[in-house]
């Protein structure tokens, strides 16, 4: 049995993982989803999300037709969603009902909350698509999964002492996730010390290590945990090149990410 302190710690880390992954993905959905694009084109707002008890404090800023995730509390908020503990923040992103104290600073709060909910629901829609949506947006959804994996690695690596030794073993450098049949899906991440940064393209030199999915389908299946990465390597649906030790050390962090993503509701 895990002790209460450990459970609390994991609850806190889960809130970083859930909010980090979901809020960062929100930035990409409007790039291919008309409903989300319309919202960010027609309005502007800043919504803060803050969890008491050592959880994250992050802000979503919609302005000038773009949606940006702000990691630090800089931009003044129109509304702040204050969660009474990190578990409640996680519950929001799991589609469960969290306990929230809204701190409202504008009369537009109803409209802003409605827009924010719509953006979130569009993300949920693409992350849990029906067959038709999956077929129609297969490449975009796979792109979201790639980004989600890298962002999840970043959160786990930076927050969770359980993987500290693994993170220490990864040499500093740049890792690329690529899909051979769709170069537009390439995403890169830089590791320096304990910190990971997802790098916006375009990129210059060769990355230090490459994880290359043969097809978009292979990327989707591995990242959705329908196919084991080691098996995909053996069947050549996935290839690794360059400083392979960087990628090998990533796998246990991805396992740990799965551990957090599969947690049941908490409060």
């Amino acid at each position: 049995m895990k002790d209460a302190l450990q459970l609390k710690k994991e609850q806190r880390i889960a809130s970083f993982v859930y909010s980090g992954v979901a809020l960062s993905l929100l930035q990409y959905v409007p790039l291919f989803d008309g409903i989300s694009a319309k919202i960010i084109k027609e309005t502007s707002f800043c919504v803060g999300l803050k969890a008491l008890g050592g959880g994250p404090a992050r802000r979503i800023i919609v302005r000038n037709g773009a949606l940006v995730l702000e990691e630090k509390e800089r931009t003044p908020t129109d509304i702040t969603l204050l969660f009474i503990n990190p578990g409640d923040m996680s519950n929001l992103f799991r589609g469960m009902k969290p306990r929230i104290i809204p701190i409202i600073k504008t009369f537009r709060f109803k409209a802003i909350l409605s827009d924010f909910r719509t953006l979130m629901s569009r993300l949920q829609y693409f992350m849990n698509p029906d067959e038709e949506t999956l077929e129609q947006h297969f490449s975009h959804i796979t792109g979201l999964l790639i980004h989600s994996a890298l962002r999840g690695v970043k959160e786990v690596a930076e927050q969770d002492d359980y993987v500290k030794a693994r993170v220490d073993n990864i040499p500093d450098g740049e890792i690329a996730l690529q899909v051979a049949e769709d170069p537009s899906l390439e995403t890169r991440m830089r590791k320096k010390g304990r910190f990971f940064t997802i790098l916006p393209g375009p990129w210059g030199e060769n990355p230090n290590a490459q994880l290359i999915f043969k097809t978009t389908r292979a990327a989707h299946d591995v990242l959705k945990d329908r196919q084991n990465a080691m098996i995909a390597l053996g069947t050549m649906e996935l290839a690794i090149r360059g400083r392979i030790s960087m990628i090998q050390s990533l796998f246990p962090i991805l396992d740990r990410l799965g551990y957090y993503m599969n947690r049941k509701g908490e409060g």
Partner: peptide
Amino acid sequence: GIYGPKSPAFVIP
């Protein structure tokens, strides 16, 4: 499938 350093991940499948 195959564990340890004889795993396909250690060479070039």
